[in-house]
Nucleic acid binder design. Structure first.
Length: 638
RNA sequence: GCCCUUGUAGCUCAGCUGGUAGAGCAAUUGAUUUGUAAUCAAUAGGUCCGCGGUUCGAAUCCGUGCGGGGGCACCA
């Protein structure tokens, strides 16, 4: 007779086998109503699952992540049911719950249209209203396979085959419709409620493999209450509002065009932002002991063959044949060029660590479907650096790179940073002893940074382990930006050496690191993080001077000149528009500070400050203004 | 690269079932001289993404190419 232990430690004794419904009922009426599924000794089960022996149990409701998943999993089954009722002959593949929703993959000749989605949604509502019971059956493996073969559900046949031998083949019935599924599911089709919505159709490869057939995937979202659904839709809307492609246009920062897909045409303001980031970075790297170099964009094929890129990365490289038939490649990475700079002249152990930075523009032929605004481009500038050092210097150098990255992210408003550590992959070069050394050196640096980190087993580069720096933006999205890799391979391939204390030639260790990663991508992230409202010091146009009427144009021009001379970027708006119009225009353009100049200001040699997103006004003598804002015109850490 | 979708003025978009284009904003000009998020009026502005086809006639239908968007795959 099972003894049931609840999460709070309380025990209930039943005198017969018991299921989740009965347990919930015993605990409270409200829990009975809210119960969706049950966790039995850590395993998720249907509420109807019979518990025969003593168990620890938790009733799962929509407040639990597992409960939400269960709702979505049920919703996707109901969607598949609706689809097969409306479009007979459609084959079903898989349909899991995902973050914020669910999808189901279908195979069908004709594509689903937006109108179809509406139809499907209506059908789903009917199914929910019928509230038919959901039942689980266990089938013989062979019976299941033969059955699915017979009715032509090829994907289900494959899925049956892929269920491990020690697991049951379970089938869930929602009314008459049924699906091969591990479960668990809610007790009836009505349980999911009515707060779901189908959101989009897209293609998706069967089993995520591009060699396989492309299926039609319908995405949807499902929530326990109207409020949660509305909040979710609102969140999507908010994210769209800060889309850097939209803001980039509105703020006149950059554009893209057909002649060069995936390459940025930077406008005056966008380029100013870009340059501000570069000079900021220069200052930080100067501080951290880097020397900046620059290497050619186009390099002979033979170098890329030697470095391994030609073989390993050839598909992504742009090449160019000269009139005399020589083949060059446009660099997709800066490292080989940097090693060649290192190779000039003999290097001694006394020169190490040697930190060479380069704002190198690289070109990569990315698949057309991967392009996405500034976030995924074909030509971008890396804030790259290569540190040549000895084995013994690895940890310290890694640690200082990590600190530099954190400082820089913090300056730009990203406080939340996590690390992803990837260790040796199966396919790799180098002795295990060297891997031991570089891995432990990297790990030591990570631990010293005291940051949260996750381990991606076997995901390192073929030449060494790596750390990726992931930051979280204002609306909780993660972006992988910086990277730090230990490389014991490339210096060797390209013949880099240094002379050690005993006069022997040794191959140095090379650390690859990028802080922002790509300037272009980072700017995209910055724009979205701040919704375009960049901090004063990094803002491409920091100040707009606005005369109240053209009577005060001369004074406004004077103010503008003085500000520009002080190193703050400023402009003056002399157009024949009224004050309200100009305030609106420049506020929409996200200029952080507007300076209003009228009679009062002329008389007192002052300016009136209006900060973006406030309508408070502050009057200040021009002299004081220049003093105050000059000190704000640099990164917090500088 | 693959699936779906989309491409009209500088921008945002309208243009039903085929009869060679329209609005708002922006621009220009004029009036207005403005004190904290859109002053009024006039003018100008278009290879309807490119190429081919169907048709008496194509922005509209078909094919194809290129670009954009949403996904999938990719992200060394």
């Amino acid at each position: 007779m099972p003894n049931i232990t609840l999460p709070d430690g309380k025990k209930i004794k039943f005198d017969k086998e018991v299921n989740g419904i009965e347990i919930a009922e015993k605990i409270s009426k409200s829990l009975y109503k809210q119960a969706l599924i049950i966790s039995v000794n850590g395993e998720l089960k249907d509420l109807t699952y019979l518990i025969k022996k003593d168990s620890s149990v938790k009733i799962i409701t929509s407040k639990d992540k597992e409960g939400l998943d269960a709702i979505r999993h049920d919703t996707t089954h109901i969607m598949a049911m609706a689809v097969q009722e409306l479009f007979p002959g459609t084959k079903i593949a898989i349909g899991p719950a995902i973050k914020d929703g669910f999808y189901y993959d279908f195979s069908r000749k004709n594509p689903f249209t937006p109108e179809d989605l509406e139809k499907i949604e209506r059908k789903m509502k009917e199914i929910v209203e019928k509230n038919e019971p959901t039942k689980r059956e266990v089938w013989e493996r062979k019976v299941a396979k033969d059955h699915y073969k017979k009715i032509g559900e090829d994907y289900k046949v494959e899925l049956v085959d892929s269920i491990p031998d020690d697991q049951e083949v379970s089938i869930y019935y929602h009314g008459k419709w049924y699906d091969l599924c591990r479960g668990p599911h809610l007790t009836s089709t009505g349980k999911i409620g009515k707060y779901f919505k189908l959101t989009k159709v897209s293609g998706a490869y069967w089993r995520g493999d591009s060699n396989n057939e492309m299926l039609q995937r319908i995405y949807g979202t499902s929530w326990p209450s109207k409020k949660e659904l509305d909040d979710y839709l609102k969140r999507i809307e908010e994210a769209e509002k800060r889309d850097h492609r939209k803001l980039g246009k509105e703020m006149d920062l950059f554009h893209f065009r057909e002649e060069s897909p995936g390459s940025v045409f930077w406008h005056e303001k966008g380029w100013a932002l870009f340059q501000k980031l570069v000079s900021y970075m220069r200052a930080k790297q100067e501080e951290a002991g880097y020397r900046e170099i620059n290497t050619p964009e186009i390099l002979d094929r033979t170098l890329w063959e030697k470095s391994g890129h030609w073989e390993k990365f050839g598909e992504n490289m742009y090449t160019s044949t000269t009139p005399d038939e020589k083949v060059f490649a446009i660099k997709p990475m800066n490292c080989p060029g940097c090693v060649q700079v290192y190779n000039q002249g003999l290097k001694s152990y006394r020169d190490l660590p040697l930190r060479m930075s380069e704002f190198g523009k690289v070109h990569r032929y990315e698949p057309s479907g991967a392009l996405h605004g500034l976030l995924r481009v074909r030509a971008f500038t890396q804030d790259d650096a290569h540190i040549f050092c000895t084995d013994d210097q690895i940890t310290e150098e890694c640690l200082s790179v990590t600190n530099l990255i954190l400082e820089i992210y913090k300056d730009l408003g990203f406080e939340n940073v996590i690390l992803k550590y990837s260790d040796r992959p199966d396919v790799r070069v180098g002795e295990d002893s060297v891997w031991d050394k570089s891995e432990s050196a990297l790990l030591k640096a990570i631990k010293a940074s005291k940051l949260e980190y996750s381990v991606n087993k076997g995901e390192g580069a073929f030449y060494g382990p790596k750390i990726e720096f992931v930051l979280t933006d204002a609306i909780g999205r993660d972006w992988q930006c910086g990277t730090l890799q230990v490389d014991l391979n490339l210096p060797d391939r390209l013949g880099a050496t240094y002379v050690n204390k005993s006069g022997e030639k040794k191959v140095p260790v090379m650390l690859h690191r990028a802080l922002f990663g790509s300037l272009e991508r980072f700017i995209g992230i910055l724009i979205e993080h701040y919704s375009g409202k960049l901090p004063f010091w990094i803002s491409p146009l920091q100040i707009m001077v606005i005369p109240v009427s053209d009577e005060f144009d001369d004074y406004a021009k004077l103010v503008n000149d003085k500000i520009r001379k002080s190193g703050i970027s400023s402009n003056v708006d002399l157009k024949n528009h009224n004050l309200n119009y100009k305030i609106r225009e420049h506020s929409l353009a996200k200029v952080p500070i507007l300076l209003i100049c009228g009679k009062k200001e002329v008389d007192t040699n002052s300016v009136t400050i209006r900060k973006l997103d406030t309508n408070k006004q502050e009057n200040m003598e021009l002299k004081t203004f220049l003093k105050n804002f000059s000190s704000l015109n640099k990164a917090p850490s500088l």
